[in-house]
Design a protein around this nucleic acid. Structure first.
Lengths: 188, 188
DNA sequence: CTTCCACTATACCGATTGGTATAATACACA
DNA sequence: TGTGTATTATACCAATCGGTATAGTGGAAG
């Protein structure tokens, strides 16, 4: 594993455990067995490091959900698949998901917000597109795309957050009931 | 307004805008028109200040929801009233609610977590008690108290978070549909 | 053999961090 | 008017923050 990757992995770990602001550059370097000039050689700044971490992992998430969230006439199916994709991604990237959850409610005046905000909006857009396509077949969804997308991701994050805090498993039963419950919220 | 209160109000404002870690003691003092020894006279430390802010506001929240979340044979009613209480509290204390949302996903190794964790658990307990009482009349809720409580608060926070980010209003319609959707999740 | 480049080591920078020691002040009470 | 106490102001602390300058090392490629 090269140094760049080592730094990213290690700082992701530290950020998720202590929070971006509570981790110093020196601490990252010590844990990665590299020196400060090396870190600045690759990332330029602390927020630059955060940005690359968020960009790279967001890309993986995006790839995971973008195909699940495709509408082909069956909205419950797409919703079900998307929930499953999110759950699986969280399981495979718990450290990053922790940080992402923080970034959903990050203070406006923080590096995490500045770096992540557009990425969060991009996530909304992907899901919004699903509901926009489905609206043609579901009249009661008209002009609610954004609201639905935000609610949907919010509910998914509720379950993932529960899992991260050991309140519940992310199993196939939960995929079903979460999807089912959300769909009921649309129809009613 | 006395200095103690002035400090608490001002730092709550700053914390919610920039995050606890990004606000320095000096900045709080400048904005409150007091000096550092005064702050340390009242609160002892930065985390002590955070603790008093969280304790005091949590107390207000607790008082607001504890009567709403009382079970008197009508679960949908109690759920509805509780959602309304949360929404109203958030409307009246947006700054604190922002911080509280952060504290639900705060990194374990942070002041915010250390100060808030028990308070969050206490919130769960209050709601858990509601579902525990209701379980006598609703067989399918047995042994799901904790899970239900966490999910319930999680869903409420999703809507409040949307409101804080200007995606949606917290009106009476949303109180109804949020309650309705959650109840459907229980019955199914 | 030389050039290039990723990387290290060390030492440093100014600014800011949370926190404190000490002395002056304002005010209630006698 | 004098005294005690609660609160404040000024000035300071060591430590750490993010970030950089400089000089040098090891190894691969031409």
């Amino acid at each position: 594993m090269d140094n760049r990757e080592k730094i990213m992995l290690e700082s992701l770990e530290l950020f998720s455990k202590s929070g971006y602001d509570n981790v110093g550059i020196q601490e990252i370097c010590d844990n990665s067995s590299i020196t400060k000039p090396t870190l600045y050689h690759y990332f330029g700044s602390k927020s630059g490091l955060l940005e690359e971490i968020m960009l790279e992992n967001h890309k993986k998430l995006r790839n995971a959900i973008i195909s699940s969230a495709e509408y082909s006439g069956d909205l419950p199916l797409a919703v079900n698949k998307t929930v499953r994709s999110y759950f699986n991604f969280a399981k495979n990237n718990p450290g990053f998901y922790r940080i992402m959850l923080c970034s959903f409610c990050a203070p406006v005046n923080s590096d995490l917000y500045r770096v992540s905000h557009k990425l969060m909006l991009n996530q909304y857009e992907i899901i919004e597109k699903l509901f926009k396509s489905a609206a043609a077949d579901h009249g009661n969804m008209k002009n609610k795309h954004t609201s639905l997308a935000v609610t949907f991701i919010g509910h998914i994050n509720t379950y993932i957050s529960m899992w991260l805090n050991n309140f519940r498993e992310l199993d196939e039963d939960l995929v079903f009931s979460a999807s089912h419950q959300f769909m009921h919220g649309i129809y009613s």
